[in-house]
C-alpha cells in the first residue's frame, strides 16, 4: 500500500477561513505543493494581499508579509531586490490586483521583477461582501451592481492576463481554472512553471487562477463550479498567454 495523496508540508495545520466550497483552498494547496516539491519552503517569502486572501499568511508554511491593498507587487519588488536568492511570490485576488493595484502589477511586470504572482480571479469582491470587481462579468449581479454589471456604467470586465502578457517585461503568463480536477492538474503545472522560471531568473511570471465564490455569487458550491465553467471561461479563455521559447 502506498500513499498517493496527502496534505502538503507547504500548508500549515491552520484550517482556512474560506467559505465551504470556495476554491481559494485549492489554490493554496497547489502553491504549497509546488513550493514543497521544489524544496523551496525554507527559502520563500510570500506577500499576502487584502481581500479574502489576507489570512494566507496563516496558511502557507513560509515567511510572509502582509501588504496594503494592491501593493503586494511593490513589496515583493523590495524583498526580491534585497534578497535575490529567495523565492518571492504574491498571492492576490482580483479586487486587489485588477483594481486598486493595477499600477503596481503592471510596473512589477514592466521591470521584469523575478517574482511569481498568483492571481486568484473570482470575478467579485469576496471579503467585503460581494461587491462588483473590475473582473465581474457583464450582467453578473453584485451588491454594488444589483441589477447586474452594466457595461455602459462600469465598462467591460478587465482581462488582466491579456494585459500583462503585452508588457515587455513579463516572461510567463497563463490562465488556468480550478473548477474541475482535470483543470486543477493543469493549474498546478502552470504554478510549477511560474516558480521554475523565477528559480531560473527568467523574469516575471503570473498565473491567473479562475476560482469560485459560492457565497458572493449566491450559488451552492457545486453550482458555482458549473457557473465558472459556463460563464467565466468563455470570457476569460484558458491557456498560455505568454511564455519564453524553450530551447
Amino acid at each position: 500500500m502506498s500513499v498517493i495523496f496527502k496534505k502538503t508540508a507547504g500548508l500549515t495545520e491552520t484550517d482556512t477561513h474560506y467559505c465551504p466550497g470556495c476554491t481559494h483552498g485549492v489554490a493554496h494547496r497547489l502553491v504549497g505543493e509546488v513550493l514543497e516539491e521544489l524544496g523551496l519552503l525554507g527559502d520563500t517569502i510570500g506577500c499576502a494581499s487584502v481581500g479574502c486572501s489576507i489570512f494566507s499568511y496563516n496558511y502557507f508554511n513560509v515567511d510572509m508579509i502582509e501588504c496594503s491593498h494592491g501593493r503586494a507587487p511593490a513589496v515583493a519588488t523590495g524583498i526580491k531586490r534585497t534578497v535575490p536568492g529567495k523565492t518571492v511570490f504574491t498571492y492576490q485576488g482580483d479586487g486587489d490586483l485588477a483594481a486598486i493595484g493595477t499600477a503596481e502589477i503592471v510596473h512589477a511586470a514592466h521591470r521584469g521583477e523575478h517574482i511569481t504572482v498568483i492571481f486568484v480571479n473570482n470575478a467579485i469582491y469576496g471579503m467585503t461582501g460581494g461587491q462588483m470587481a473590475p473582473t465581474t462579468l457583464s450582467g453578473q449581479k453584485a451588491t454594488t451592481a444589483p441589477t447586474g454589471r452594466n457595461a455602459e456604467l462600469s465598462g467591460m470586465p478587465l482581462k488582466m492576463s491579456e494585459m500583462i502578457a503585452e508588457v515587455p517585461g513579463a516572461t510567463y503568463v497563463e490562465r488556468v481554472s480550478l473548477h474541475h480536477p482535470k483543470y486543477i492538474r493543469k493549474a498546478k503545472k502552470a504554478i510549477l512553471r511560474g516558480f521554475t522560471y523565477q528559480l531560473q531568473n527568467r523574469g516575471f511570471s503570473m498565473v491567473e487562477l479562475l476560482s469560485t465564490c459560492p457565497t458572493g455569487w449566491g450559488l451552492a458550491p457545486v453550482a458555482a463550479l458549473e457557473w465558472l465553467g459556463n460563464n467565466m471561461i468563455p470570457y476569460y479563455p484558458l491557456g498560455v498567454l505568454k511564455a519564453p521559447e524553450e530551447v
Binding site: 498517493i4 481559494h24 483552498g25
Partner: peptide, 21 residues
C-alpha cells in the same frame, strides 16, 4: 479507483488517499 479527483477538488485538504497494490 484512486483517481484523486476528490483530493484535487477539495479546498480543505480533507483527503489522504492510499493505493492498494
Amino acid at each position: 479507483i484512486g483517481c484523486l479527483s476528490c483530493a484535487l477538488i477539495c479546498p480543505d485538504v480533507t483527503f489522504t488517499i492510499e493505493l492498494l497494490d
